[in-house]
Simulated assay, not measured.
Amino acid sequence: MTALNLVATPGGLARVEGREAVLLDLPCGDVAELLALGEGFAPARRARELRRLPLADLEGELLAPLARTRAIWGVGLNYRSKAELTGRPVPKEPILFLRAPSAVPAPGAEVELPQDRSSQVDYEAEVAFVVGRRMSRVRPEQVWEHLAAVTAANDMTARDVMAATGTPSLAKSFPGFGALGASVLDLSGVPDPGDIAVRATVNGVVHQDSSTAELIFPVPDLVSRISHFAVLEPGDVVLTGTPAGTGQDRQVFLGPGDEVEITVPGVLPLRTRYRALPGHS
């Protein structure tokens, strides 16, 4: 069975095939809506092809592939490299938070820096997993069969807002701060779900380069723990944490004109550009 790699376009969901996007006859605007049907990727596999377009023609036109997700869960300090660099002790329990789904922008979007609230906006390269089957009190060994897909995430954070409020949801829910995509890859296309590479470049320079094999709380443990406190529904997203190399680690934060690219193998690159708030420079 060939793995699906889906993008959201103005014409609907499309399957990525090499340098082409194959538009599918589906009643879904994005992957979260597709998975909410309760059949995983099966509807996309049997959908009729409408037409083919060069991916290059969709540059700047792709929509957020998980805009309709119901919940986005995140976790702090989940890479050993990050804990070692900061000197913080390895947590005994995951540091969990929820982000407002309204923070999800389109891939390639230009995000406005909230300069009236923050001067320390930071990028965080992460691997994100998408729930395929309803999860409640699921054991770690059952987690993989409940997950449907993987994608890239830029888990942006206003570090000074975080320090001032102690509230991750506020520091991470500004418009555009929850970038996901640019495509969503069926988990069957991942050779080793426990060892997925993730990389971030800022203006073409690599600053983060790691793998989920370095997680403090591996994916089955992390997702299982969440499911014992909250029900996870198809289309929900779970972020897995970020490795060392963020702007916070270098004390260099994002400014107008910067571009961040997050790459996860098999997923189209996730690019985010930044512009100044009107009246600020």
Score class of each variant (00 low, 15 high):
P101G: 15
K92T: 10
V238K: 11
G76T: 12
G176H: 11
S169R: 11
L55Y: 11
I216V: 11
D116Y: 10
R134E: 11
D57Q: 14
I216L: 01
E93A: 14
S102A: 15
G241L: 09
T69A: 15
P218C: 09
L187H: 01
L113W: 04
R80H: 13
A83S: 13
A163S: 08
F129T: 02
L63A: 12
R70D: 07
E17N: 12
G204T: 12
D186E: 14
T272K: 04
Q208A: 02
F253Y: 15
L180G: 09
S136H: 08
N154V: 01
V104A: 05
E261M: 14
A14Q: 05
E259M: 11
E20F: 07
V260D: 01
S119F: 08
C28V: 02
R45D: 01
D25G: 06
F229D: 03
G247I: 11
E141P: 01
V150E: 05
L26V: 05
M1L: 04
V219M: 12
A103N: 07
A109Q: 13
L215V: 00
R159C: 08
S118R: 13
R159D: 06
R250K: 14
Y274V: 03
E145N: 06
G279M: 07
P91M: 02
P107R: 15
V104R: 02
A67V: 02
T9Y: 02
L268E: 07
F177A: 06
P234A: 14
G255C: 05
R275K: 10
Q120I: 06
